[in-house]
Amino acid sequence: MLDLAIRHSFPGGQGFTLDAAFTAPGAGVTTIFGPSGCGKSTVLAAVAGLLRPGQGRIVLDGTVLFDSAARRMVPPEQRRCGIVFQDSRLFPHLSVETNLRYGLRRAPRTAEGPGMEEVVSLLGIGHLLGRRPVALSGGEKQRVALGRALLSRPRLLLMDEPLAALDASRKAEVLPFLARLRERFSIPILYVTHALDEVDRLADRLVLMEAGRVLACGTLEALSARTDLPILAARRDAGVVLGCTVLGHAPEQGVTRLGFPGGEFAVPLESAVPGAPVRLRIRARDVSVATEEPRNLSMQNVLPAVVEAVEAGRAHEAMLRLRLGPSLLLARVTQDSVHRLGLRPGLPVWALVKAVAFTPGGGDNPA
């Protein structure tokens, strides 16, 4: 477990004062999300020991890494934090294999963790071992950098926007490996990003930051349903994230059926096996409502719901909170629709979502 509470002012009074506090569990991916320049990478640097905060305390699994009151500052090399930066920072004069073995040499003799063969297999980089970094694509470099960090057998893996410098195709290449890493190993990960698709794919716990402060902390599913957090709710791609289970496939129809507490969704055909857990983002802009059960529609997802709240949105819009059993959906509609349909808390409605709204391969598909 990571416990962090730090405060730091930058020299010359430039920028904001960082004042952040949160707890990250000892397993899974804790993602720090927020706009560029909000202090995400500064927090990561403090955990890594690359920045000495003005005041505060950082504790990892009961070991004090930093304590301003006690004047304790553990050097970076003694913290056992593996780091993957936005740029891979591989040694250009060494082969891929030698770069990986450098990480292995940094691992304490008694430390348990993945071995060379396991990491190479997991990241699919066996065919790259003899190459130099200059001969690698951006996605390949990041996979090698990740492998080097894993082989150091860290207590905590720190990732500072590792996909930000990659184009869409290279990013799509690396994301599955990161998801596989989360599933395979028990190493806790602190992951910094400003990309919502990475949050949807990887985050178990979410830390929202803005202007140097933590706005909220919790599970992705819980925070995505909150409309009092503009950093999420004001986005055009705002929406809830639901944990689902694959119920089955209908290849002849080109759809997969996903179950969630409160109903089912039909999404474009997926390859996940029945019973597998998946995660689905339902964007508020893709949800419509009807006050009577619609018939003869092309939409495959028509679910009974109850309006829980009608909240003001941007300009002439409103945000509806729709209750489907224990689950919530958000729907972005016009104020005119609210008045015409008489939408109000407690009103039974039908929530409508197109199956094609869940784009295969993107942040809105099952992860």
Rank of each mutant, 00 (worst) to 15 (best):
A203F: 01
D204A: 08
L206D: 03
L206R: 06
L206E: 05
V207D: 07
V207N: 07
V207P: 01
L208Y: 04
L208T: 06
L208H: 08
A211Y: 08
A211D: 14
A211P: 01
G212F: 05
G212V: 09
R213G: 03
R213S: 11
R213D: 04
L215Y: 08
L215V: 14
L215F: 03
C217A: 13
G218K: 06
G218I: 05
T219A: 11
T219D: 12
E221S: 12
L223Y: 02
A225T: 10
T227K: 06
D228Y: 10
D228F: 11
L229E: 08
L229C: 07
P230Q: 13
L232Y: 01
L232S: 02
L232A: 04
L232D: 00
A233R: 10
A234G: 09
A234K: 12
R235F: 01
D237W: 01
D237I: 10
A238P: 01
G239I: 08
G239T: 05
V240N: 00
V241R: 11
L242T: 01
G243Y: 02
C244K: 04
V246A: 07
V246S: 06
G248S: 10
G248F: 10
H249W: 09
H249G: 04
A250R: 15
A250K: 12
P251C: 12
E252K: 13
G254Y: 08
G254E: 11
G254H: 09
V255C: 09
T256A: 07
T256W: 05
T256L: 09
T256C: 09
R257E: 15
R257H: 13
G259H: 08
P261M: 06
P261A: 10
P261R: 10
P261G: 06
G263H: 08
E264M: 09
A266S: 14
A266D: 13
V267E: 02
V267K: 03
V267G: 01
P268C: 12
L269K: 06
E270A: 14
S271H: 13
S271E: 14
S271R: 15
S271K: 13
V273A: 15
P274A: 10
A276G: 05
A276T: 15
V278G: 11
V278T: 14
R279M: 02
R279P: 00
R279W: 12
R279E: 04
R281S: 08
I282M: 06
A284H: 02
A284V: 01
R285I: 14
V287M: 04
V287H: 02
S288C: 11
S288Y: 09
T291E: 05
E293C: 13
P294V: 05
P294M: 07
R295Y: 10
R295H: 13
R295F: 11
L297S: 13
S298A: 14
S298N: 10
M299P: 00
Q300T: 11
N301L: 03
N301D: 07
N301M: 07
V302T: 06
V302W: 02
V302K: 07
L303Y: 07
V306T: 15
V307A: 03
V310C: 06
V310S: 07
E311Y: 05
A312C: 10
G313T: 05
G313I: 05
R314H: 12
R314Y: 11
H316K: 12
A318N: 00
A318S: 14
A318F: 04
A318Q: 05
M319D: 11
M319L: 15
L320D: 00
R321D: 00
L322F: 06
L324V: 01
L324Y: 05
L324T: 07
G325S: 09
S327P: 07
S327R: 06
